[in-house]
């Protein structure tokens, strides 16, 4: 019984570390991607201001694509937080 409780605590603590790594590394990667894209958008807009409306739509869509891995990571992190499949084996 005592061993089981210890195992559950161990799994929960490692899960928290995993969740924080998933969210933080995903956020860092998304931020770097968006920063690079935004810098190029500003560069292009400064060179040719008449292209701003066209570029704006593309930037909006590409931001969604760059954020995709982060959003999927948030979903996975919530899965581990609310319905941890690793704990099911112990129960």
């Amino acid at each position: 019984m005592e061993n089981t409780v210890q195992y559950i605590a161990l799994v929960q603590s490692y899960t928290i570390i995993g969740i924080s790594l998933i969210i933080s590394l995903g956020a860092v990667a998304a931020c770097i991607g968006i920063a690079i894209m935004c810098s190029h958008f500003l560069d292009g807009a400064a060179r040719q201001p008449e292209l701003i409306p066209t570029l704006q739509g593309k930037v909006f869509l590409l931001m969604g694509l760059i954020d995709a891995p982060f959003i999927i990571g948030v979903g996975l992190a919530m899965m581990f937080a609310f319905a941890n499949p690793l704990l099911a084996a112990l129960h």
Partner: peptide, 13 residues
């Protein structure tokens, strides 16, 4: 849920 989420996010392209 993750499957639906991933499919929808990637389809936004």
């Amino acid at each position: 849920l993750i499957g639906g989420l991933a499919g929808a996010v990637l389809a936004s392209g």
